[in-house]
Amino acid sequence: MAAKTLTIDGTLVSAREGESILEAAREAGITIPTLCHLDGLSEVGACRLCLVELTGSRRLQPACLTPVAEGMEVRTSTERLREHRRAIVELLFAERGHVCAVCVASGACELQDLAARLGVTHVRYDYLAPACTVDISHPRFGIDHHRCVLCTRCVRACDEVEGVHTWDVAGRGTAARVITDLHVPWGQATSCTSCGKCLHACPTGAIFQRGSSVAELKRDPGVIALVVAARKERW
């Protein structure tokens, strides 16, 4: 496969053809913030955190979906991008009820990490404080919609890896919710195999194991990529 040479933040980087800017940057040790991306799942370009500047392009481009090209000049961390990323993370915190102090995922939460890494000291926007539901109808797992960021990683893990498509999205705008089957309580979603992939895929404490308390959540997002890679080798 042909190699492509590009510059990322001034560093010359060699990448494989067809690779995304996100992958090329990571191999070069440059971290671009992400939220809806998860290794092993398809890309949706929805969170907008990985937007980067490209020389010659007026528009910001999502690093997860933009393939590398010869001679490309990428900037991943300009002041404009950092400000936009902070704003996006703040908007998420303002949207639902992310209370790290009482969350199972505290310490293992991508949203919490993003806020700290991006320098979010406080949220400038009004907290919308919607009343969301908590579904603990499933015997092993639960979902607290206050903590959902609508990244759809559960939806994709369930559809693409488990092959079940129990999860989907209903509603629109801030009223959008991830749902199980045709919007029935999770415990009644007969398609669910209880494989737990959604739990591993969730970046926040939205999907949790029942019985876990603050900062007790144990999960391994890498398991999704592991399963995908293992299947590729076998089939």
Partner: peptide, 14 residues
């Protein structure tokens, strides 16, 4: 807003 991307979903509300 369909709710897919964060800036539009929450930004329009704000």
């Amino acid at each position: 807003s369909c709710g897919k991307c964060i800036p539009c979903r929450v930004g329009t509300v704000q």
